[in-house]
Structure formats: C-alpha cells, structure tokens
Design a binder for these strands. Sequence first.
DNA 1: CGTGGGGTTGATTCTTATCAATTCGGGTGG
DNA 2: CCACCCGAATTGATAAGAATCAACCCCACG
Lengths: 249, 249
Amino acid sequence: MDSDAVSMESCIVQKFTELRKLDDNEIELLASLERDLTGYAGGERLQHVGEEASRFFTLHSGWACAVRVLADGQRQILDIFLPGQVMGLREMGFDKTHAELVAVTNVEACPFPRSRLKELFAEAPRLGELFFIVMAREQAMLTERMISIGRRPALQRLAHFLLEFQVRLGSPEDGFELPLNQAVIGDALGLSAVHVSRTLTALRKRDLVASDNGRICIVDVDRLAELAEFERGYLDCRPRCGGSGAASL
Amino acid sequence: MDSDAVSMESCIVQKFTELRKLDDNEIELLASLERDLTGYAGGERLQHVGEEASRFFTLHSGWACAVRVLADGQRQILDIFLPGQVMGLREMGFDKTHAELVAVTNVEACPFPRSRLKELFAEAPRLGELFFIVMAREQAMLTERMISIGRRPALQRLAHFLLEFQVRLGSPEDGFELPLNQAVIGDALGLSAVHVSRTLTALRKRDLVASDNGRICIVDVDRLAELAEFERGYLDCRPRCGGSGAASL
DNA sequence: CGTGGGGTTGATTCTTATCAATTCGGGTGG
DNA sequence: CCACCCGAATTGATAAGAATCAACCCCACG
C-alpha cells in the first residue's frame, strides 16, 4: 500500500496529518471513511432533523453546513464545513440528529456508518484521540462564533468571520472564493441578509476588504484583525513559535 | 475495590454511568480523576487565558463557568458547569488555553494533568469513546445556546436557558436554586444585566416563572417550552421512548 | 427579452443597550 | 435595636444597532 497515494486522494487524511504523523495503518483506516463518494447539488440536504443518527459524512469537495431551522423559518447555521472535515460528529452523543446538513455548493461527500467510527476507535485508539482533538478544535470554532454573535457588533462580527475563512483556506494573499450568499452569512452570524450587505459595504468603505461576486480579498489583514480582535490561534494546527502567551496573533 | 463506594464519592463516575454501564476498571480510572479536591472561592479563577493547557479539572461541587473576556471588558460565557462535568476538555486541541475558568459559587474541583487523560485513552479505549460522547453532548448545549443567542429574542432566550437548567438539575417540580446573578445570565445569553431583569419580570408577569432571591420555579413548563421552542432531547441521557421522530419534547 | 436570484439602498420600526436613579435585602458595627 | 452600607435588582428615559419592508439595480440564464 502506497500511503502517499492514498493520502493524496483523501482530504481527511490530509487534514489529520496536519495534526499528527500517522502510520500506514491509521492512514488506511482513515482513508476508508472517504470511499464511496456521493454527489449532492447545492441546496440539497444530506441529513434531516430527527432522523436516526446512524451515519456521518466526510466532505471531499465543496462547501456544506449544519443548520437548525426554527419554527418561524429563521435559521442558525452551526458549522460551515470545508473539504477534509467530518460532518455530523456532534450527533455521536445522540440517537437522533438535531441539525440538518445542507450542501452549500455542489458537493462530494462520503457517508459512512456510525458503527465504522466505533470500530475505528477500537482498532486504533490513537485515532480516537485524534478524533477527540478534531472535535475539540471544531468546538473552538463554535465558541469563537458564539463570542461574535453574543458580544460583537455586526462590523466586527463579519470581519472576524472573513478572517476565519482566510486562515482556514490557507491564508492566501490574493483573496479567496467565498461561495456563500449574504443570507447564508447572515444565518451564520445571527444577522439579516440586508444587514450583512450594509456591513460588507462598510468594510469596503474603510478599505479593509475588497469583494466582488463571491470573491473576497482582505486588503489590510492587520487592521482588520485588530478591529475584530481576531486571534488565529484557535485555527492553527501547530503552535506558532513564540511562547510568552500574550503576543499571539 | 468496592465500585459502589467509589461511584458514590465521584460525581464524574455518576455522570458517566448515566450514559453507559462501566466496569470496575473503568470506574476506578474515572474516579482517579477526581481525587485531590481543591477548594476555590466564588469569583476565583481556576484557569487563565493563554496559560499552558496542561491540565483539566473535574468539578466536584458548586458551579463554575468558562468565559472569554473581550478587550472592552465585555464577557461571553461559553459553558456553565455543574458537578460531575469535566472542565477544559475543549483545550485538548491546543497548547494554550483560550478561555478562563471561573468559580461562580464556592467550588471544589480536582485538577488533573492532560497526560492523565491520554493515558486513560490508551488504557481504556471505551472510556475514550465515552469522553468523545460527553464532549459531543456538551457541544450540543453550546449549539443550542448559539441558536438562542443568534436567533431568539430575549424572552425566548431566557426561557430556554431556565428550562435547560431545570432539566440539567433533574427536572425538580418545586423549583431550584440558580446561583447566578443577572450579570452572569446576561453574559451567557448575550444580553445586558438590565435586560435580563426586564425579561425575567416579563416571564413572571405572564405567570410562566416564579422567582425570588436566586430561586427559580417554572410555573408552567409546557407553556414555557412552547414559547422557547425548547426540545429537551439534547439533554437526555437515554433516548426518550417513542420512536417516530417528530414528537419529541 | 423577459425572468429571477442576489445585492444594494432608503425609510421606518423594533429590540436591546446604556445611563441614571431608586429600591430592596442582608450584613456590619455602633 | 438601629443606622449604615453594599451588592443586586428594578424602573424610567434615551440612544444605538439591527430588523423589516419595499423599491430598485444588476446580471446571468433560459
């Protein structure tokens, strides 16, 4: 088994290797979660609320999200998933799902049974620990967004959100595609779509961000990060060098 | 080793047994996390932001919370911990902590080193899985609160919050102590303390809740749950019987 | 050429924050 | 026993932030 070839194909393996060096067995086990690729069209639901939480999905390509719809039709987006993430892990604690999984763009995802994950925990305890870490890190993204929604005004909230994706997408200098319309961004940030529009305009007016047609370019990362009190530590895989605590952007 | 005696002493063991039957070895391992009880006064910090994430705490008695303080002094409370919970699990994904741990009331907690958790994962993989489930369930509490903060007005937000604690405290019919002042409640719900006061008054006026001096009594659980769109499923240990999905309060 | 989804903009309303004053209850010391 | 004090809760007045409603533009697409 050529582990390089496998890890090239598998987004999950790639993501996990950023955290820890894996041996061939672990790679093979992980890669097995990403085998039967299924295509979903943008807007399609991969999982409904209240169904048996009997399977999870690995996301191979495209963007997806977990969302909760309230009685009056309002939505709160809980997670936004990028390729290489495992979707639905949170439902591991329950028999029935508490959120929908929706394809934001066209998506290739791989469903795998819950039992597969349990087996994996037993066969490779170290992978269990890794999954634990992965979940802890996704929880950190959750809490960061909770802080935004709870305590930051719209401008900082959106700034923080954009910075998060810039980092999650590998900190490209020259901008990135953000295939989320303003309604989706609003549902993630607890804002109305209209207010997202105004707020994005405000960021543009201040020359912090340039954007058109789904493409975002952060003009002045430092100033934007200061505005948003953005600390990227919660997204970094390896600790950033320096050790003195306070100065960690 | 008399496992009953051990499990009586240990809140953690108690909590974990609600999820799964444990064998004596697992009980002993878990109980070992709750050995050197340390007392902390209300308001005291058990963990600061940015320190080495080298240890976690089990909470033995009292209430505590994880909180993030923003530059302008605003606070967002991330978790509110009750006895039997493990505090700081989220920091497992990082070297440095991203939140403070604060004792809300006087508290007895037991610090244990991060390495102890890793050992435990290796020695008892099934406990690893259980920790995974525990974390998933705490994440569900997080997302529920995120939905509240993002999309529900203050009245429903507070209603949901009170219902959550009623359930977490064992659904007492005759009210319960809520040792949180209105500033703390506000910091958990993304509201100002003043608005918490008004909102609680509103709930009282509608005869949904009675409260005085830190004691809460939910007068009409059903009506309050309807108001808040509260579904207790995310707090239940065992699935509630019926299987048809939709009708799960 | 229409059509529809997304984005922008303006006017207005609603919710919640903020500021300030007052009350209440429990503890302390005289 | 009473005067005082303090933190917490309440209440009122005002202001800020964001939602809502509605109109309009732009552009990709059939």
